[in-house]
């Protein structure tokens, strides 16, 4: 445990925190623009060139807004809940290798904060623990809509965690490791080696469950405006509300990295494109896909959500695991 390692880790943590907080803000801008273009609108146009400074304006608004805590709320829990969402989203990034190794001034940098050998499970577990943010927020708010949002959090996240785990199980069986770096190295041989060709069902299930776990639109029942005002976030304002959204966008990027590392070849070189740029392209495509579906597909009802999870996705995932096992045995 030498000093260089500690310093490098701290620098990596700061970089990840800074970049992904900024990306979360920029993500809102991209989301608004993409949604607007798909709906024949222009999106934010007034602040700065093409509305680029809208992020800044929103940030100033969030920081200076009154931090309001309702009278009947359970104060400490109410205050800590958004922090849980943001913190778990960033902790989950600790075990994700973002880029290939590179060398600065003779010092080899591994762009992963902590390479533990159960990295994949760790990421999924911490993302699963992120459900405490909305859950506690809803239960502490003393608001009927909030508690409905919290109940939906509990059932939705809990159900789809099962699907995520089972869908990742089949690739884990093929690779034989839980470390994301091993996953990446397994797919080093170019596009034909990508796991998505061997496990297409697992990939689709993982993406669908990812939508539910990051609370994105076809499944964003936690804060479905038409049904439960703003769900768990009804009583929140200012930066506490903002932290929920930083967490949500950070989770989207985490999921993008996970999907590209497990199924889409990770940070291996893609033809002539260097690996670092290749993985960024994959992550941004998945991010764009999130926005694309938001513009295209309708919400589902809560009962349809549960039906989809337990009667369609989970049996499919189990069958997929069984078939993978049988194929691997012979």
């Amino acid at each position: 445990m030498d000093a260089a390692f500690v310093i490098a880790t701290i620098i990596k943590i700061l970089i990840v925190l800074g970049i992904f907080s900024a990306l979360a803000g920029f993500g809102t801008y991209v989301e608004r623009k993409v949604l607007a273009f798909m709906q024949r609108r222009l999106g934010p146009m007034h602040v700065g060139p093409y509305g680029l400074l809208q992020v800044l304006a929103d940030g100033i608004k969030l920081f200076t807004k009154e931090d309001f805590i309702p009278q009947g709320a359970v104060r400490p829990i109410f205050m800590i809940a958004p922090v849980i969402t943001a913190a778990t989203a960033f902790i989950a990034m600790a075990a994700i290798p973002m880029f290939p190794e590179f060398t600065i001034g003779g010092y080899t940098v591994k762009p992963i904060i902590s390479d533990i050998n159960v990295g994949l499970l760790f990421v999924l577990g911490v993302m699963g623990a992120g459900l405490y943010g909305p859950l506690l927020a809803g239960m502490a708010s003393q608001n009927k809509w909030s508690i409905l949002g919290a109940a939906r959090t509990a059932i939705q996240f809990l159900s789809y965690e099962v699907v995520t785990g089972l869908s990742v199980l089949a690739p884990v069986m093929i690779v034989g490791s839980l470390s994301l770096i091993d996953f990446n190295n397994y797919q080093a041989g170019g596009v034909s080696d990508w796991l998505v060709w061997k496990q297409p069902i697992a990939f689709i299930l993982f993406l669908i469950a990812g939508f539910a776990e990051t609370n994105r639109t076809p499944f964003d029942l936690l804060e479905h405006e038409a049904e439960v005002i703003s769900g768990y976030a009804t009583e929140y304002s200012g930066m506490r509300w903002g932290m929920f959204f930083i967490g949500e966008y950070a989770n989207m990027f985490t999921l993008g990295f996970l999907a590209s590392l497990i199924f889409l070849g990770g940070f291996n070189d893609l033809w002539f494109i260097p690996g670092a740029i290749a993985i960024l392209m994959k992550v941004f495509f998945i991010f764009f896909f999130f926005l694309w579906t938001r513009a295209s597909w309708p919400h589902v009802r809560p009962d349809q959500l549960m039906w989809l999870c337990w009667k369609v996705l989970m049996p499919l995932a189990v069958i997929n695991v069984v078939i993978t096992g049988i194929v691997m045995m012979f």
Partner: peptide, 25 residues
């Protein structure tokens, strides 16, 4: 990791779901 996933992810969330019967305040 199993402790995080099973206990914090599943067991406690189920308890929280059960807690909706109580008035938490």
């Amino acid at each position: 990791v199993v402790q995080i996933i099973v206990y914090s992810g599943a067991v406690m969330a189920v308890y929280a779901f059960g807690m909706m019967f109580l008035d938490t305040t």
